[in-house]
Design a protein around this nucleic acid. Structure first.
Lengths: 204, 204
DNA sequence: GTCTATATTCCGATAGAC
DNA sequence: GTCTATCGGAATATAGAC
């Protein structure tokens, strides 16, 4: 088999290594040497495949954030009944985070460092907004199935309870003295727990 | 007036400058030059007062985390009635975070980077645990005033809803299109909103 | 105590042999 | 395509004059 250009296998190994290192240490903390080591190559070869650290990082960041945002939008904008949708969001979110525990800290860090227009450039085309969700909530309020509530606050609550535990894990473990294994178990339980907690609070 | 040792005023200015820079950029992102600029001095003088960046950082980190943890423990371990305590925690937490919006990201980042035993060394003596809160909840469950609930999950929920919005602010602003001023307003409203949300969910 | 100038270390990036 | 060796810049840290 003829290799037309850069070796696809090596390129893939580098991307995986870069993803791992960047997610754990962030842009500022990551070293090209770390990534090279993780990929089992040396720095020179790393630069042969990806000319600069900035460029490599941008690929990882774009890829990570774009597999995250559209996924949740899809659920939010679906036409499920509200309670079912809430259950779906919690389950889906937490399942994904159990598999990618470093993702929230990475994304939040890097998003905070970018200028204001950055998200627009990156996510602008994905019309990531809550208008459909807001309308759905207002409809339910009018029907009288749920208490009056500010949709943005409700959404913040759901997102907070799903994501924060993965950010505050070390602090939580210190306070509650749970082991790593027990922590995962707590998160598994959260998939249904958070949804029930929310629904119990808003239903009339 | 005789100066026995290093100028207290300058030292203070440096600490304030370091705190500001470290909170905004974290250990890896902060530059000694930034801190010197912020304090209105040069790098050499900065090193005269604090021999190394590591050492300066450690002081800021220790100070920041130690003004944070005991504060919340005090409320948790008080003997207020449960609902009142929840209201108190939310109000207090969010008020503090409106004043120190960079604190959560800073603490979470740096805590995540430390090894497992680090928190024990730093907070070990402050017996930061939830045993009293747990007992109080179990008592209320037995009395039948609240639904059965895992205390750790409940505490995670409260903490999540108070802290997360400050971490996810840019993402939230992108999705909900609120301005900075409106965001602060939303947080002000959250002081009572979160408490009510929690209490509505757990009360029988 | 504060400065300028310089040493030292670290890290991203490139040159050039194979 | 992969390596060793090295450059060049940036950042921490120190030397030494005032």
């Amino acid at each position: 088999m003829v290799k037309k250009q850069k070796d696809a296998g090596t390129q893939q190994r580098i991307l995986e290594a870069a993803r791992k290192v960047f997610l754990e240490k962030g842009m500022a903390g990551a070293r090209m040497q770390d990534i090279a080591d993780e990929a089992g190559i040396n720095k020179a070869l790393l630069h042969y495949y990806f000319t600069s650290k900035d460029m490599l990082f941008e690929q990882i960041f774009a890829n990570t954030s774009q597999t995250f945002v559209p996924h949740i939008n899809e659920i939010i904008e679906s036409d499920m009944p509200l309670f079912e949708k809430i259950e779906h969001i919690c389950d889906d979110y937490i399942s994904m985070l159990i598999k990618n525990p470093y993702m929230p800290l990475f994304l939040i860090n890097e998003i905070n460092k970018q200028d204001g227009d950055f998200l627009k450039r990156m996510w602008g085309k994905q019309k990531a907004n809550l208008s459909f969700f807001v309308a759905q909530i207002q409809k339910e309020v009018k029907k009288g199935t749920i208490k009056p509530i500010h949709p943005a606050q409700l959404y913040m609550n759901i997102m907070s309870m799903c994501v924060f535990p993965f950010l505050g894990k070390p602090m939580m473990q210190f306070m509650t003295k749970v082991t790593d294994k027990e922590f995962v178990q707590l998160m598994e339980e959260r998939k249904t727990f958070v949804a029930r907690f929310v629904i119990d609070s808003i239903r009339k």
